[in-house]
């Protein structure tokens, strides 16, 4: 019996070409995101960030999540900023939400994400991530308190 078309092996050359073209097709979106991150990093400085905290636990978690979501870059940068925020007296709840939102949420990437995956998937993904990030921050610090007290 002749094998179905989708079961036939593709050559290594075709596999590389397909992977390369897939990335190239994404280039306008990637360059747009990178350009926007450059602008965000210029205008949202660590000093501005620290002024937004210090109200109550839930507000701090919300603020941490929001700021993490609009910031972006290497996760190492978020840890360095987080250390600075802790030194300035920002709660661990807020800082945890901040470092988590930094790597899981991306307001800057939203238009690009929706254009690739569709609006429905992007909305579900980001809503679930937003709720999870706030809950993970809350439970992490609560659990840490239980283990270290």
């Amino acid at each position: 019996m002749k094998p179905k078309k989708e079961e036939q092996p593709i050559t290594a050359q075709k596999a590389i070409k397909k992977a390369f073209l897939s990335l190239v097709s994404m280039m306008p979106m990637l360059l747009g995101v990178i350009g926007l991150i450059g602008i965000m990093q210029t205008y949202i400085t660590p000093d501005i960030l620290s002024k937004l905290f210090g109200y109550n636990l839930y507000a701090d978690i919300g603020t941490g999540t929001l700021i993490g979501a609009i910031s972006s870059g290497n996760p190492a940068a978020s840890y360095i900023i987080a250390e600075g925020l802790l030194d300035q007296g920002v709660t661990l709840y807020a800082v945890t939400a901040f470092i988590l939102a930094w790597v899981t949420l991306g307001i800057v990437q939203l238009p690009a994400e929706a254009s690739v995956f569709g609006m429905r998937f992007s909305v579900y993904k980001n809503l679930l991530t937003l709720i999870s990030t706030m809950l993970v921050a809350y439970f992490t610090v609560i659990t840490l308190g239980v283990f270290t007290s």
């Binding site: 097709s25 306008p28 979106m29 360059l31 747009g32 926007l36 238009p111 690739v116």
Partner: peptide, 13 residues
């Protein structure tokens, strides 16, 4: 083959 996110890139430019 089709570029994705061209409009988004134009907005950023």
């Amino acid at each position: 083959f089709q570029f994705k996110g061209l409009k988004f890139l134009y907005v950023v430019i």
